[in-house]
Design a protein around this nucleic acid. Structure first.
Lengths: 129, 129
DNA sequence: TCGCTTCGGCTACAGACGTAATCGAAGAAT
DNA sequence: ATTCTTCGATTACGTCTGTAGCCGAAGCGA
């Protein structure tokens, strides 16, 4: 059921979200290992990662636990919660809360692969029950 | 086909987007009429609307034309373009570019009404050809 | 024990954003 | 003509974001 845990709207920024993805993928994890995972890709310095981590801790969406002399970080919110909130936010903002127009939009802009279509059809059949 | 017109990534902020919605709805339109349309709802002053309008003009997503002593504003980008870009951005960021998981997410979080389902099914049938 | 390295914490700082007041030109009213 | 009103333009300013440097404590190597 994954209860709502998007702390009173404490928004997670784009860069912060990139860090969250790492934490969701592997956790608990140290700051330097997070850097290991994305610094190259995003062309960041370790300092940047540390700042983002501490902002996430402040926002109470990431927790820490001491590990010897260093810290390990772990997400305090579920990725599915985050993704759900963000998806809904977009649907609300851009499509008046209706999902069908979003679907139409994606279809029109060719963002739907054949695989997507097949999968969605399967899901639909699934829900039909 | 609505060619790409999201000017070299000039992002439109949330507040700016609200103004764009008014312009897409009615245009050309004067600053005060835009205010008429949203100032109450968003609890803004006319000054705020004027700032947002000029930022949109700077970003070249809104154009102006003189109308006697005042200006009329009109959108320079299609709503469908904007919506397409934003939708894709979300799908890329949150679902690795795949639309099916987004669909699943919406389904799971009960963001899909029966109407949505029916509409999507219709669209699917449509695309099947 | 004395630097060298490593970490987290604090500080910094420019650009974007939300929100708005003020200013100067141009009309409108009298 | 003089004042009042209306606009767009300019300026303001606090917060958030992206990006990072510096500092002091704690281990580590010698």
């Amino acid at each position: 059921m994954s209860q709502r845990n998007q702390n009173r709207g404490e928004r997670i920024s784009e860069a912060e979200h990139a860090v969250m993805e790492v934490l969701w993928d592997t956790n608990p994890i140290s700051a330097s290992d997070v850097c290991e995972a994305i610094c190259a890709e995003r062309d960041w310095s370790i300092a940047t990662v540390k700042t983002l981590l501490s902002r996430l801790v402040q926002k109470e969406v990431v927790g820490t636990e001491p590990d010897g002399r260093k810290f390990l970080y772990r997400p305090l919110i579920e990725r599915s919660d985050y993704v759900g909130v963000e998806s809904r936010r977009l649907v609300d903002r851009l499509f008046g809360g209706r999902a069908a127009p979003l679907f139409a939009q994606l279809a029109e802009s060719e963002a739907l692969t054949d695989d997507d279509l097949a999968e969605i059809e399967a899901l639909l059949r699934e829900m039909r029950k």
